[in-house]
């Protein structure tokens, strides 16, 4: 840090945040974006109606540390692993955090598929920031 009076992180975590699928409910995504901003992170917000391809373009060009995706009910089992796989296929070593309703019984399957973190609807700001930071740390 070059300025002793400057308390901000000189190398903030950069997160690409997106919603997969057609559904337009972005309340949760927007709340999470603000929580991460207030946690000192830089959020590259892609918004609604993204595909794995558009997310990968963004991750690559933005040199992102973490991908956060949000999805409608019941999409996590297919879309979460699909995102992880697509990133791996593109040769991008970037962890994926998923937001949405994920039943506890599905969590082991998500972890096995390589999803770095899962955030449910009741997650607090601290939990959200900690989860994304932990995911970023796995990247080294």
């Amino acid at each position: 840090m070059n300025d002793p009076g400057d308390l901000t992180d000189p190398t903030p975590v950069r997160v690409v945040l997106a919603k997969l699928g057609l559904d337009g409910h972005d309340r949760g995504l927007k709340v999470v974006a603000r929580m991460l901003r207030d946690g000192g992170m830089e959020v590259v917000y892609l918004g609604l109606r993204q595909t794995t391809d558009t997310i990968i373009d963004a991750v690559e060009q933005e040199d992102a540390d973490v991908v956060g995706i949000s999805m409608l009910n019941a999409g996590h089992l297919t879309l979460g692993p699909r995102m992880v796989e697509a990133l791996a296929d593109a040769g991008l070593d970037v962890p994926v955090v998923i937001g949405g309703i994920v039943p506890d019984e599905d969590r082991p399957a998500m972890a096995a598929a390589g999803v770095a973190g899962v955030l449910g609807p009741g997650a607090s700001a601290d939990e959200v920031v900690a989860c994304v930071r932990a995911a970023a740390d796995t990247r080294g």
Partner: peptide, 10 residues
Amino acid sequence: TGGAILGDRV
């Protein structure tokens, strides 16, 4: 906070 929301790609 030093954080930011970068929305241009939208």
